[in-house]
Design a protein around this nucleic acid. Structure first.
Lengths: 109, 109
DNA sequence: TGTAAGTGAAACCATACGGTTTCCAAAAAA
DNA sequence: TTTTTTGGAAACCGTATGGTTTCACTTACA
């Protein structure tokens, strides 16, 4: 599993990883805790978690013999911002108005 | 390029496809118009566009000898909604509370 | 009519991806 | 001390991915 492109968009493209994100968004878990939610092997889950850590969505810290996995989903803001920049495509009815107001309405956090 | 998983998340995971999305969000273009923006070959771009059409983000219609590619980014709402469901992770206000609650929820086993 | 433009499709390629099994090491519990 | 829990690491595998080149077919135009 050599990775070259390792960004948030690629990280969330896998459904298993999105599920892991969801699990960890609720509660910090160790590796086995996470793996228990899946039918796949523990090493497979470990690899997914590693990918998530490589783009910063998950942080890991060792506590005794356990590897605690904690979500840090601030990186998803990038995804939200990107998708929202095309919001006019699903906000119907306001199309013309949206276009007109677009310059002034971009929420610059 | 046989595709099995073909959903929006996977479609937007490739930077080239996000760039194509951006191009088409501004203006409908034919295949060569799109390919002119990239250094890769036209067939490569055509494959990316096909992936985008397979998840509904781009629609294609033939006009004479041209293949017009038009963005239909309503499917990105799914991405926006998903990312926004974790919005608390980058909303500063609740940060401290979140961390506090999380610390108490670490499984001890 | 001949030729250029625009594209689809096929064959091919290297490597990334998602998964497995196996083995080993350290920490905790018996 | 022995055994169990937890997980890292390596080797391996089939397939998906992202790209290429080549060829053929329409459509438009001179």
């Amino acid at each position: 599993m050599n990775q070259i492109r390792r960004d948030v968009f690629q990280a969330i493209s896998d459904p298993t990883r999105r599920e892991i994100i969801d699990l960890l968004s609720v509660k910090t878990l160790n590796l086995n805790n996470v793996a228990d939610h899946f039918t796949m092997s523990r090493p497979a889950v470990a690899k997914h978690i590693r990918i998530l850590t490589e783009c910063g969505l998950v942080t890991v810290r060792t506590q005794g013999r356990e590897t605690l996995c904690q979500a840090d989903l601030r990186g998803l803001k990038q995804v939200s911002d990107w998708a929202n920049s095309y919001q006019k495509f699903w906000t119907e009815k306001l199309d013309a108005l949206e276009k007109f107001l677009d310059e002034d309405m971009i929420p610059e956090d």
